[in-house]
Nucleic acid binder design. Structure first.
Length: 255
DNA sequence: AAGAGGCCCAACCGCTTCAGC
DNA sequence: GGCTGAAGCGGTTGGGCCTCT
């Protein structure tokens, strides 16, 4: 591969390139140039890389392309339930600190996690008619969503689902120390979760009573006569089977 | 079949932080 | 300590693809 043999860093060449910078999708040829250049010179110094490689891209663009797409250890494909669980938990801990969250998911980029959060998680917050940062949504995640993911992970790995399932257990299942947090803090992540609110028992009791003919569900529920309650259809292909149900939405609304 | 709308993701933008002088 | 350029990070956008009507 030839690197266009131009004078690296000359003021003249640079001003010409500034006028003629490329944007938009990368071509296979550009990818090859970038990969070869990184293989020969290593990562970093992105601005000089952009100049010296002959790529008419900004250093930022080169860095982003390498980190998010060309790096050999980049992992592509669907986010697994384990990864979903980690993202939910880590986001509840750190918020939108995507690069920090990405440190716990080898091969996943901050951009990918950020996209996942925006497209999948925020979509479901919208369906639940609450803000993704609201206490309502966080509680729904903690007490409904995360336990179900854990169930699914355990089921898939053949571990008994009769084992206690709770926020603390979930964290033990998947949490690993980050590179800079090699020693687990004494206050474990799971300890940050409060006990579930009593409303969950209330709803469970209501469902049980209905099934035995001794009680009924909330009025709005029984009057709706519509199993989806007019709520948006949930995309099971994304979240798996029955991760959210109408009951979950009712519970979430009581929180 | 085709148009509309939504989803998804790669890439860009702007701000902040860091490092060297 | 202040300045400047590079790198990193999070937010946003544009466009391709898919699904629905």
């Amino acid at each position: 591969m030839e690197f266009h043999g131009r004078t690296c860093g000359s003021a003249m060449a640079q001003s010409e390139e500034e006028v003629d910078l490329r944007r938009g999708p990368w071509t296979a040829e550009e990818d090859l140039v970038l990969m070869n250049y990184v293989a020969a010179h290593g990562e970093g110094r992105w601005n000089s890389l952009a100049r010296c490689s002959g790529l008419r891209r900004t250093g930022k663009s080169c860095r982003l392309r390498w980190l998010n797409y060309l790096r050999p250890d980049v992992r592509r494909g669907n986010i697994t339930p384990e990864e979903q669980l980690l993202i939910l938990q880590l986001h509840s801990r750190w918020g939108n600190r995507w690069s920090k969250i990405a440190q716990y998911l080898p091969g996943r980029t901050d951009n990918e996690i950020k996209n996942y959060w925006r497209t999948r998680v925020q979509k479901h917050a919208k369906q639940l008619r609450c803000d993704v940062n609201s206490k309502q949504f966080k509680d729904a995640m903690t007490y409904v969503w995360i336990p179900r993911l854990v169930e699914r992970i355990r089921a898939a790995s053949g571990v008994s689902t009769t084992a206690p399932v709770g926020p603390a257990a979930e964290v033990e299942l998947v949490m690993k120390p980050s590179p800079e947090e090699s020693s687990t803090p004494s206050s474990s992540f799971g300890a940050e979760f409060p006990p579930p609110p009593p409303v969950f028992d209330t709803f469970a009791a209501a469902v049980a009573a209905t099934q035995s003919g001794e009680g009924e569900l909330p009025k709005w529920w029984s009057e709706s006569g519509d199993t989806d309650l007019g709520l948006p259809d949930f995309d099971h292909s994304v979240w798996g089977d029955d991760l959210w149900s109408a009951e979950d939405i009712w519970l979430q609304q009581q929180l």
